[in-house]
């Protein structure tokens, strides 16, 4: 039992896990360091635009996840 672990069991599940990890990486160092500039995008600071891009990307990934979960019927 010591080596048993819960991991994704399908390609879609692994894809979803990768997307979750990418979202977390996007909001933390070192990615956040690359965007740390005092510039404006559409009049809004780049860091704020990036924060909301991550926020809405989270919604997109979860919408995709809902389709996968409901298609595969894993409640």
């Amino acid at each position: 039992m010591r080596r048993l672990f819960v991991l994704p069991t399908s390609r879609a599940g692994w894809g979803l896990l990768a997307a979750f990890i990418c979202l977390v990486v996007a909001g933390t160092w070192p990615v956040i360091g690359l965007l740390n500039r005092a510039m404006l995008v559409f009049g809004i600071p780049l860091m704020i635009v990036w924060s909301y891009a991550i926020i809405f990307a989270c919604v997109g990934v979860m919408l995709l996840g809902n389709r996968i979960v409901e298609r595969d019927d894993h409640e």
């Binding site: 160092w29 070192p30 956040i32 360091g33 740390n36 500039r37 005092a38 510039m39 404006l40 559409f42 009049g43 809004i44 600071p45 780049l46 860091m47």
Partner: peptide, 29 residues
């Protein structure tokens, strides 16, 4: 237009638009 607020901040107080912030206490870590 919120952009007008941020343009003024960018010109006069650009340190508020990046980390570690104006007080220098929000490091990447």
């Amino acid at each position: 237009d919120m952009g007008a607020v941020f343009e003024r901040i960018q010109t006069d107080h650009a340190e508020f638009l990046t980390l570690p912030g104006a007080r220098g206490d929000m490091s990447f870590s």
